[in-house]
Write a protein that binds this DNA or RNA. Structure first.
Lengths: 170, 170
DNA sequence: TTAAATGCAAACCGTTTGCAGTGTA
DNA sequence: TACACTGCAAACGGTTTGCATTTAA
């Protein structure tokens, strides 16, 4: 079965290698925003003949072709999502790192207005809301936004990513 | 003459070394958001006995003390500004990298509302507008957001920083 | 057949850190 | 005098790249 992204690659004239097909398939999984390492992990799970260099080259190529969009939610790693849905923004759960997308026409209009007031033509915009579920108290070893994969030397660096809710740093 | 940040350092019980005093002074220059290299360049201009490791350690310490805030406007380098003024957001000129701060109460309210609608208590938020002056056509060697200091190997990386206006990559 | 894609390992860049020496309080 | 701070250089983590090899079209 041919994934959506695979189809787009073919349309753009890219060669569909085995590795590319796997990566395209993983990227077609809906509703998440994996970083390159996560992508690599999932892809390697399907076919171990994939190197992380290929994953990096592929997401970069796909971004240049307009098939993917790169996001930066802090933590020092780029995350990717398929380009498809219109303008949308992100609500990030600071406890789990989960990302929820939303659209907001009123907000769209307001941003145009602000830019115009400052004398600019709006090229792009980024709105990210960092929040916490009020009913669920933060789990015991509080997992911060960037705690997806525990690391050693750079944990501090990850925890310091912008914006960091006061009191959650480690 | 004692800078605002220097005073805050003393209040927090930090030792005021010559290097620290210089860095504090540079950081007190109003209305910009330098990255560490820029900070280092300016500080070294005032006193050459400053190493970049000290600049990194200082901004980190000052961030932990709540005196500075770290920003990420893409380009792979953290930028810093003094913590002082209330909630504000940023309009970034994609041609020059210049940053304009603004406040917007209506927007503040809207963000609370969106978070609540999604079932979250808002912890923090980030709104960044990337724009271009409509009257000034992009200068010949188009200076992108991250072109503050021309580099060699990582120019491509810098140009790919989120969000990147299509057609301005190099 | 050939240009594009890959794997490997080394390079790169921003940032952090270990250690021995320096300077503030 | 004690301990925070500093400089240097090496380490680190994410990302890119040179080169020889493989592979889709």
């Amino acid at each position: 079965m041919e994934s959506r992204i695979e189809r787009l690659c073919i349309e753009k004239g890219l060669k569909m290698t085995g590795q590319r097909r796997i990566i395209a398939r993983v990227l077609s999984e809906p509703g998440d925003h994996p970083d390159v390492e996560e992508l690599y992990r999932r892809a390697a799970g399907l076919d171990s003949r994939i190197s992380i260099a290929t994953v990096y080259r592929t997401v970069r190529l796909l971004e240049e072709k307009g098939i993917l969009e790169r996001r930066d939610f802090g933590g020092g790693r780029a995350r990717y999502e398929p380009t498809e849905h219109g303008h949308h923004h992100h609500m990030i759960d600071v406890d789990t790192g989960r990302v929820i997308e939303f659209e907001e026409p009123e907000h769209e209009r307001l941003m145009q207005e602000i830019a115009a007031r400052l004398g600019f033509r709006l090229v792009s915009a980024r709105l990210e809301l960092f929040g916490r579920k009020p009913d669920v108290p933060p789990p015991a070893p509080a997992r911060s936004l960037t705690a997806v994969k525990p690391r050693v030397a750079s944990e501090a660096a990850a925890a310091r990513s912008t914006p960091r809710p006061r009191g959650v740093q480690r």
